[in-house]
Design a protein around this nucleic acid. Structure first.
Lengths: 188, 188
DNA sequence: TTAAAAATAGACCGGTCTGTCTATTAATCC
DNA sequence: GGATTAATAGACAGACCGGTCTATTTTTAA
């Protein structure tokens, strides 16, 4: 992996674990095994640019994962269920350390860092649009609100899952998927 | 207001706006207009103790508010709707700066600060229990899962609301309250 | 009134923060 | 092969971090 990618990956991981403010430049470069000069070579904008790159990376990675899970499922329900399972696996295999970095950064940056907030919004828009497209691919209406409601509940469940160190909130979300999709047969 | 209370209130506000890690001791005491000695007099445990006190304050404040809204409503639906309205008001009147501090701190501390994580869990337990009791008071079963589902969705909606600087996610939650309560007539 | 306790006040410490700067090495291109 | 650019390397700066410590002032209680 290139030095640039390594910086982005390390940043993404640390942000996922403890947020943006608590993640330091020195920590990032140490874990990436690179000098500070390299970091400012690839990201002249400093920490903010690096965080935005990490968000972008996460946007692509998860967007692809969403699409793959939907395409590999025979129904929309199964697809959404697969997405939740993806997070369940992510949380359990990381001992509930790897949450959704978007939510963390969103809450940290909402009032203080407009540039980062824009990045967060961009990621969310991407996921919603991708989910709509996938739902339509599965013969659903693919209403934007359906995707939004799903992601809203998912974000809430991810918060609760980390609080209680339990996948139960995500399991409960899975139980509600059918209900959530029942209004997605016609356009609104 | 006492010096101690002022410290707690300032801390709670700053944490709500930008999280725990980005909020510094010096910033807190400056805004509270107190010297550092006073802060460590009331909170010998330092930042962690102060954060926990802020969480506790928020727990009580919001717990009371929940109960009041439920008691002042004729139905359970109306009560939950009132709780959502409370957050809508909170967000709009603060220009979407005042989110849910519990979620922010939860995500920041999940893997790094066990003491704070415990505090977060305690707040959440308190809210859930209070909500269950209020639902029973309104003639509902007051299943724990009903309260959990509501709060889960609420937390998700609060994240989305701050991302999009819009109350729409919370308005959408209100539309789902009836559906959410439909399984709370019998115990499970 | 005086002794003890509570609260205020802020200098100070070692460490870390982001970010800048100057070299030096490695790769690329003509 | 020589010049130009990319990348690595890390010393350094100035600010700020959480936290400790010693006074001083205020309040309380005997």
């Amino acid at each position: 992996m290139s030095s640039r990618d390594r910086l982005v990956q390390v940043t993404a991981r640390l942000i996922r674990e403890k947020g943006m403010a608590a993640t330091g430049i020195n920590e990032i470069i140490t874990e990436a095994g690179l000098p500070k000069g390299s970091m400012y070579h690839y990201f002249p904008g400093g920490k903010e640019e690096l965080v935005k790159a990490a968000l972008h990376s996460y946007k692509e990675w998860l967007g692809q994962s969403f699409k793959a899970r939907m395409k590999g499922s025979s129904t929309a329900e199964e697809g959404l269920c697969g997405i939740v399972d993806f997070f369940i696996h992510d949380l359990t295999s990381s001992d509930f350390v790897a949450g959704c970095p978007v939510a963390t950064v969103a809450l940290e940056s909402a009032g203080t860092s407009p540039g980062v907030s824009d990045g967060v919004r961009e990621v969310m828009d991407h996921w919603i649009a991708g989910l709509c497209a996938s739902l339509q691919y599965k013969g659903r209406a693919g209403n934007k609100n359906t995707a939004i409601d799903f992601i809203t509940h998912l974000e809430g469940a991810l918060v609760m899952a980390r609080i209680y160190q339990s996948t139960e909130p995500l399991e409960r979300l899975k139980l509600k998927i059918t209900e959530l999709l029942q209004n997605d047969y016609t356009t609104s």
